[in-house]
């Protein structure tokens, strides 16, 4: 890989960087700043009033209702991370080390499912999880009592939807870090007499850590914003933060409140991101790590 050092005066660099940078600044960075600014305003008669005070923040911090929902959102996100990693790791490992013949086809199938409209997939889950749905019908036919499962409109239904929509992310990141592992390291461990299991835990697993961390963080931050799943599959019985945000915009027309709740979620996600990358960096520089 040849790397060219470029100055900002170089028109080629400017052409490559400037348009994208402008789009991202104008429609991503500025909106973020705007959201932060809006949290210091208030509404009067359903209209935004530029008042510059902390009224919204005192409201947000003084109402336990918000914090119960925020806490629930974070707990759901953590559970989702655990389930996603537990599914994604063996699947990515199988894809990286076994299944040589059908690898491309499987990858295409996964990508296709991943890119299919989330509304459609969620709709499909309703038809499966419904009391008279496909899952119960199948269970009944293998001998379970009718209505064995009652998952639609429960937090479990929400969780199935969240895992479904997010599990592909850690699969990709873990797969990418697994295929980058130098095969010689694994063979060297075998030569040195290590068992398969020991090689896995002392060579493969530590080296796949970047993929594990980044996959886990992605699932966490993305599940903070889960909206369709709690609404459509959870039936609104256990609302998550997204529902709170939607209500403050649509029902209550209180933009500063919606902005403040959005900022709380963003800060939560950013904190988790910072924490895990700090942790990953510390692990990397920790002494005694097998080189």
């Amino acid at each position: 890989m040849k790397i060219e050092v470029k100055s900002w005066k170089d028109p080629v660099l400017l052409a490559a960087v400037a348009p994208l940078a402008v789009v991202m600044i104008a429609f991503f960075l500025v909106p973020l700043v705007m959201t932060a600014v809006l949290t210091f305003q208030t509404t009067q008669y359903y209209r935004l009033a530029w008042s510059w005070d902390l009224k919204i923040w005192t409201e947000v911090f003084s109402k336990p209702h918000y914090w119960t929902i925020m806490l629930r959102t974070v707990v759901m996100a953590l559970v989702c991370v655990a389930i996603c990693i537990a599914i994604a790791f063996p699947a990515a490992y199988a894809l990286a080390t076994r299944l040589k013949t059908f690898k491309t086809q499987i990858q295409i199938l996964i990508i296709f499912a991943f890119l299919t409209d989330a509304v459609l997939k969620t709709f499909g889950w309703i038809l499966i999880l419904d009391k008279n749905g496909v899952a119960n019908w199948l269970l009944m036919h293998v001998g379970f009592p009718p209505d064995a499962l009652n998952l639609l409109f429960t937090p479990a239904g929400t969780m199935i939807g969240m895992v479904y929509n997010l599990v592909a992310y850690p699969m990709f990141t873990i797969y990418l870090s697994l295929v980058r592992i130098d095969r010689d390291l694994v063979l060297a461990a075998y030569d040195a007499g290590a068992s398969r299991l020991r090689t896995f835990f002392e060579v493969t697993l530590p080296l796949s850590r970047p993929g594990l961390y980044s996959g886990a963080v992605l699932v966490f931050v993305l599940s903070l914003g889960a909206f369709l799943e709690p609404k459509v599959l959870g039936g609104g019985t256990a609302p998550l933060a997204s529902e709170l945000i939607r209500q403050s915009f649509e029902t209550r027309v209180n933009w500063p409140l919606g902005a403040a709740l959005t900022m709380v979620l963003i800060v939560t996600g950013a904190l988790m991101l910072g924490l895990s990358s700090a942790f990953a960096l510390r692990r990397r520089s920790a002494p005694g790590r097998p080189a």
């Binding site: 429609f27 991503f28 909106p31 973020l32 599940s223 914003g225 889960a226 945000i245 959005t262 979620l265």
Partner: peptide, 11 residues
């Protein structure tokens, strides 16, 4: 790294 909903709300 942004949940789509938040990206949408911010914009």
């Amino acid at each position: 790294l942004f949940p789509q909903l938040l990206l949408g709300v911010v914009m």
